[in-house]
Design a protein around this nucleic acid. Structure first.
Lengths: 215, 215
DNA sequence: CCTACCGATCGGTAGG
DNA sequence: CCTACCGATCGGTAGG
């Protein structure tokens, strides 16, 4: 029997771990800190996860799965134009890394501490995200709307994802630039990198917020 | 008295730490592993550094200082054209992160474990590196050769440095793309991002290799 | 979900 | 530069 309370405790542990991993990293965060943040003692974690590593895996996998869902959904909602599809995909990454910094940073960094099949699963998801972007770039090049550096979709996809992924490191909501303006600038940068038109036919709106664990 | 042997032991410890921090990160590397890699026992580290943290500080500061030296030198060697200066600065970063992945990755990631004045010193160096790039972008915009997204040198400088900094995460010498070709592609991407001409008047050559500690 | 505890490992030190 | 050792903390478990 898995009660509602059990699920809620599990989600609270994941939420506390997200914040702590974001602030200090996985290795510098102890099981005691995670459980105390939820008002539990250390041993309580093992009612929900077989190990600290397994908690990390389930958290990181969920972050990646959510990004994949948004990616697939945004692309199919963008219509047939490769430029619009590309802008929509970039928008998903910019939004995730500026609006949901904690989850994004944890997803982008802490998966390194995984190993074996757990690491492999996450790397596979990351590859699918890259391939999704590269596919759109290739389609745009074949349609003649993009002019890729080195005629290589892989290089541009990598560069764009790298530049978007690090937004979570420095972006602040209360900074000089609003999320909406940063969103616009990064889409424009990404379009320039692809050698496409300087604007999409329709600007993507900020996608729906990812579902966060309730506290 | 600081003998030649003492200096060499210190440099060997720094070199071993560089490789281990690159492979596993600062926190996951023990003092025992660093000293054993040099054929010493654990206590030997404290003949050269007051603490593990201080070793990290001296290593990370040296990595940043070296990058700053190359930056200043490359810019002054590039002549008066902002486009050439920009290409030269980007070239320094691409070269550092593709040819010297271990030092670059350690410099870009492990400084997070520093605190207090040590952290402040490194952040100041990183800011100078960003400002150097932003200055060139601003000069180019005022000269009418660049057209910056959001008319903001800061945004473009950040995006370019982020995209270059992550080259060390995935670039392999034995991959499909040679260092020279990757170098060229990233300079071209950076020029597109700045809204400049698609090529500099003179392509930067790969800069001199950084001085690595001798083993 | 808690209490009490395990062995292992950590960074650092004393004394030579 | 080594040997021997310190207290602290770690992830994880047994038993309730």
């Amino acid at each position: 029997m898995t009660s509602v309370e059990t699920v809620r405790s599990r989600d609270r542990l994941l939420a506390a771990a997200t914040t702590l991993f974001y602030e200090r990293g996985f290795l510098a965060t102890s099981v005691k800190e995670i459980t105390q943040a939820c008002g539990f003692t250390q041993g309580a974690l093992y009612n929900h996860f077989p190990s600290k590593d397994e908690l990390l895996y389930q958290l990181v996998l969920d972050i990646h799965a959510e990004l994949e869902r948004h990616t697939v959904q945004a692309r199919s909602a963008a219509g047939d134009d490769p430029v619009d599809q590309y802008a929509a995909l970039v928008a998903v990454h910019v939004a995730a890394h500026s609006l949901f910094r904690e989850r994004s940073r944890v997803g982008n960094h802490e998966y390194r501490w995984l190993s074996g099949t757990h690491l492999r699963d996450v790397l596979a998801s990351r590859r699918r995200l890259r391939d999704e972007l590269a596919d759109v770039l290739t389609a745009g090049q074949q349609a003649g709307v993009f002019d890729l550096v080195g005629r290589s979709a892989a290089t541009t996809a990598r560069a764009v994802l790298d530049m978007c992924g690090l937004i979570s490191e420095w972006f602040r909501d209360d900074g000089e630039v609003t999320p909406t303006e940063m969103h616009r600038r990064y889409i424009e940068l990404a379009l320039r990198m692809a050698g496409g038109p300087s604007t999409p036919t329709t600007w993507p709106v900020l996608p729906d917020p990812p579902v966060l664990p309730k506290l």
